[in-house]
Simulated scan of single mutants.
Amino acid sequence: MTDTVPAYANANALAQQAVELLVQQLPTATPLTAVPLGPGQAPSAASEAIRVHFVGSTSADLVLVAHEAIAEALAGAGVGVTAAEILRPALEAAARPLGAGVLDTAHEDTLGDALVDPDMEAFVLVDADGTAQAWFGIRVRQNRQQTAPAVAPAPAPTTPVDDRARMHMLRDVELVLTAEIGRTRLPMRQVLDLVPGTVLELDRAAGAPADVMVNGRLVARGEVVVVDEDYGIRITEIVTDEDGR
């Protein structure tokens, strides 16, 4: 069970990090800059919005209005591709500052009063001329059992047995692992010009290990192998918190 935490100490910092990462991944025709939403700057309550929830030790509700900003990308994505699917990578990036957790399936809905909710950290995304192109909001939540009382008693020391018991409870939770062999950045015009046969140069040398990611977090590296005609990853390195990015 979660409670909204408007006074959460890191809410503003988390929201700022989230929107900065989101802007970097938005497939818009022009670069956008995030500024705090001011009075009268929210879009119509009837606007189409993408909503998604992040569940973890720090949970959050995210809302994004960007249908017009990604119109070109949506038009070039092909039949059946939704705005929620196109915006998924940007929303995953926005959730990274929240730490370990799961981002559920995004869905489209009318905006309503989400961005003017007093508990929502809201931003307007503007182009170089200062024209609003999109809007983003994030409401940070915290697990109720983790909310500290006014006078917190000294925490009881944990033991390895306690830690193992907690981990045992999570053993059946399924996580999505992805393998990444490299990345590249392209302007929108080149993305729209992609055709079968186009070769994209990635930022990874041939034969370099692939990154194994869990919810966007690097956890291991390995080499690509073939297992019964399917691709697989042979783990060669486990990445610790100190080594991860």
Rank of each mutant, 00 (worst) to 15 (best):
T4Q: 12
V5M: 13
A9S: 11
N10I: 02
Q16L: 06
Q17K: 09
V19C: 01
Q24E: 14
Q25A: 15
A29V: 13
A29N: 03
T30Q: 14
T30V: 15
L32S: 09
T33Y: 08
L37N: 02
G38I: 04
G40V: 04
G40N: 04
G40P: 05
A49P: 08
A49H: 07
V52Y: 09
V52Q: 12
L62P: 05
V63F: 06
L64K: 01
A66H: 06
E68H: 13
E72T: 11
E72H: 08
A73H: 08
G76Q: 03
G78F: 10
G80A: 01
A83S: 14
A84Y: 06
E85P: 03
R88N: 05
L91V: 01
A94M: 06
A94W: 04
A95S: 15
L98K: 02
L98Y: 01
G101D: 12
L103E: 02
A106R: 09
D109S: 15
D109M: 12
T110W: 08
T110K: 09
G112D: 12
G112W: 13
G112F: 12
G112Y: 12
D117I: 05
P118H: 02
M120S: 05
A122I: 02
F123Q: 01
V126P: 03
D129P: 00
T131S: 14
Q133M: 11
Q133R: 15
A134Y: 05
W135T: 03
W135K: 03
R139S: 12
N143Y: 03
Q146P: 00
T147I: 14
T147P: 01
P149E: 00
V151A: 14
P153N: 07
A156Y: 03
A156S: 12
P160N: 12
H168K: 11
V173T: 01
V176W: 02
L177Q: 05
I181C: 14
R183E: 14
R185Y: 02
R185M: 00
L186S: 03
L186G: 04
M188K: 11
M188V: 09
V191W: 07
L192E: 02
D193T: 01
V195H: 12
T198I: 02
L200Y: 06
E201R: 14
L202H: 09
D203Q: 04
A208G: 00
P209H: 06
D211Q: 15
D211S: 15
V212E: 07
N215E: 15
R217G: 05
V219N: 13
V219F: 15
Y231T: 03
G232H: 04
E242S: 14
